[in-house]
Design a protein around this nucleic acid. Structure first.
Length: 306
DNA sequence: CACTTGACCTGTCCGC
DNA sequence: TGCGGACAGGTCAAGT
């Protein structure tokens, strides 16, 4: 659920709050949530563990696709993948509990009401900084995980090295999309776009939205998309993600940013995601829900005919 | 080999 | 009210 715009929003929030802070202590409540703690891995002697982060200072926040990268002063870093329900929530000293204590950050924000006490029952990892502030990694479904590694090993990381271009960089062009669609020619466009090697960071929401904007049916074969449509789709993906980042991301279920605040994209800008059965913004036809590439998929049967 | 389905989890919602 | 089942959808392993 957190896709690129949500992860980018979190990254910016953390860049503004935790950079320069030193990790004093880490509490891992769910071993599953930390790579190397539950599974016995070969070469485990080299696996870096939470304890290796204690005493380290956050240098900068980075992102690759849907992966958050916490750079530390020195040779180490750690990554966090939020998967479906992960959250990274920062709390200033004394702001762990009631909403009221949080006024300095979220007071007056229309979406601030959902902020709850930390930690809660979904909290899997707690970072305590030397100044007493906290970073909570919450993850209801325990699909997400944190991995500690050396910065030098990042490019070779199994997950990172398979990622396609960053959609908002100039590395992502209609030609790169064309090449990916050739590789995935026999699959649906939707499946091809969900594959992180095609372009990094798209998930169910922004794939449906980008396809609606380009008037392509999600179940259309990737190999059948014309050059004209490829060019439009490339631009629409960029536009869609840019607008979503400006809106602070999408909150379909439980996404919140680093300060615990929901995103505005869905209510304000979504054309199809979460709107099954409602009239199309362009033509008024009722939007249809189906299943494509194993995911719930919403599209307009009139605007997206081919 | 290309493509699809299931597993991993937990919470919510719906029908009976 | 309680209970079973479908659903939510990122990624990888296993299956067809």
């Amino acid at each position: 659920m957190p896709e690129l715009p949500e992860v980018e929003t979190i990254r910016r929030g953390l860049q503004d709050t935790i950079v320069g802070r030193t990790i004093a202590q880490i509490e891992v409540r769910s071993a599953k949530s930390f790579t190397g703690m539950s599974e016995a891995r070969p070469g485990s002697a080299q696996t870096l563990l939470p304890a290796d982060l204690e005493g380290q200072t956050i240098e900068a926040m980075d992102r690759r696709g849907k992966l958050l990268i916490f750079n530390l002063v020195g040779p180490l870093c750690f990554t966090a993948h939020l998967r479906m329900t992960g959250q990274m929530i920062f709390r200033e000293v004394g702001a762990e509990g009631a909403d009221g204590a949080f006024d300095g950050f979220a007071g007056g924000h229309p979406n601030a009401s959902m902020i709850g006490a930390m930690p809660d029952r979904s909290t899997r990892v707690i970072f305590t900084f030397a100044d007493g502030s906290h970073l909570y990694f919450n993850d209801q479904r325990k699909f997400g995980f944190i991995t500690v590694l050396r910065k030098a090993d990042l490019p070779a990381d199994d997950f990172i090295r398979r990622l396609g271009p960053e959609p908002l960089s100039e590395d992502f062009t209609w030609q790169t999309l064309r090449d990916a669609f050739v590789r995935h020619g026999g699959e649906s466009v939707k499946a091809a776009l969900l594959d992180q090697s095609t372009v990094a960071g798209l998930g169910n929401i922004y794939v449906d939205e980008s396809l609606f904007r380009t008037r392509i049916r999600p179940d259309r074969l990737a190999g059948d998309v014309s050059t004209v449509k490829l060019k439009q789709l490339t631009q629409n993906i960029k536009d869609c993600l840019t607008i979503a980042i400006e809106a602070g991301g999408s909150t379909a279920r439980n996404y919140v940013n680093a300060l615990g605040i929901k995103g505005d994209y869905l209510d304000a800008y979504a054309h199809v995601y979460g709107r099954a059965g409602q009239p199309c913004h362009a033509c008024g036809t009722l939007l249809k829900k189906t299943k494509v590439a194993g995911r719930g998929t919403v599209y307009c049967p009139h605007c997206q005919r081919r």
